[in-house]
């Protein structure tokens, strides 16, 4: 049985609202936020980045289980905002959780699904017996160019899933990926901000991949939407995942627990994984979960998951629940936001 042995999420404390952002560019941000289904987005502290978020999430995952970190044989960190272009995030995480030196580690990049790609790799390594545990992390401090629609949603957060085959709290029954070359969203080497194809990111990219992936996975598993207590779809905004769910036949009650974008924005590589953490925070034995990530470029990773009895012995309370991070937030204005994002040009000493 391969699955999730532990999980941990982390969301920075600061938030900014669409109204506050819109005011800077002379538009009605509040209405724009409503149209996106986003009330606020998370903003990293001045000393936070993809690495610190990954470490915080990984440490939260390890607080909930008593495993020896040295038994972690692989760490994969997925992000599109690794602080270094060359030098891995994963090695810092490995050192910070005490997993070094007997392990393999690498960074992944596949827009918003780099973290779930790590889950798949860990599953393979665990299933083949090459490693005892693997840690898959999705973490981002995503960038949206000032004034771009992305600025209203691109946020920060991350999640870590410990994959193994002992004391599994949620079994991953199957994973399936749907991948094509679709240039809907990209960032060229050396560019500060990503570019995107506007409305092209919708139908041919997000919807085609998410819907196909979900349908094929359910076909393979012989399941229907009503077999799932929870469904989590990649959430670039608050609307797309609901629409995708509806098109597949899911109801809002199945979507709500795993839909975090309305409160924290789009955490990119963290998005579906944080949604999954939020679901696991409340899930009961036997609950079935469908999780479908989407990464621009483009691909979708689907996971069919069943919560096990082990979740009853699991120490969720040893680390903050996702709800804690959502509630424990502080709003900042645009001036502080630019300061936290290091966009104020300071004197060079």
């Amino acid at each position: 049985m391969v699955g999730i042995v532990s999980y941990g999420g982390y969301v920075p404390r600061y938030r900014i609202t669409p109204a506050e952002i819109g005011a800077v560019w002379g538009i009605d941000g509040k209405s724009y936020g409503e149209s996106l289904g986003v009330k606020a987005k998370s903003v990293p502290g001045a000393d936070e980045d993809t690495i610190t978020i990954a470490v915080a999430a990984a440490r939260n995952a390890l607080k909930r289980v008593s495993i020896n970190p040295k038994d972690i044989g692989a760490i994969y960190c997925g992000s599109e905002s690794h602080p270094y272009a060359v030098k891995p995030t994963a090695t810092v995480v490995a050192e910070a959780i005490g997993a070094t030196p007997d392990l393999t580690a690498a960074d992944y990049e596949f827009a918003c699904k780099a973290g779930t790609a790590g889950i798949q790799t860990c599953m393979g390594l665990v299933k083949s017996g090459m490693i005892k545990y693997g840690l898959a992390i999705g973490s981002d401090t995503s960038q949206g160019a000032p004034g771009d629609p992305l600025e209203y949603t691109a946020s920060a957060g991350g999640a870590a899933l410990l994959i193994g085959n002992e004391k599994v709290v949620a079994e991953i029954n199957r994973t399936y990926s749907f991948t094509t070359d679709t240039p809907d969203f990209w960032r060229r080497e050396g560019q500060m901000y990503p570019s995107h194809g506007g409305r092209f990111t919708g139908e041919p990219a997000y919807f085609r991949h998410v819907l196909t992936c979900a349908k094929k996975l359910m076909e393979m598993q012989g399941t229907k939407p009503e077999d799932y207590q929870y469904a989590i779809f990649h959430q670039p905004n608050g609307r797309f995942p609901r629409r995708a769910g509806k098109m597949l036949g899911f109801k809002d009650e199945q979507i709500n627990q795993g839909l975090l974008t309305p409160y924290i924005g789009n955490t990119y590589s963290g998005a579906v994984m944080l949604g999954l953490c939020s679901v696991l925070d409340v899930a009961k034995p036997g609950d079935r979960i469908l999780a479908v990530a989407f990464g621009s470029g483009a691909g979708s990773d689907g996971f069919d998951i069943t919560v096990t009895d082990e979740i009853q012995n699991f120490k969720r309370e040893n680390a903050p629940l996702i709800r804690h991070y959502i509630e424990n937030a502080v709003e900042v204005n645009y001036a502080i936001y630019t300061k936290l994002k290091h966009q104020i040009i300071l004197r060079e000493e």
Binding site: D47, E48, D49, I51, T52, A56, A96
Partner: peptide, 12 residues
């Protein structure tokens, strides 16, 4: 003085 604190991992 006396506030309880715990370690976090950040950029120095």
């Amino acid at each position: 003085i006396g506030s309880r604190v715990e370690m976090v991992f950040r950029r120095l």
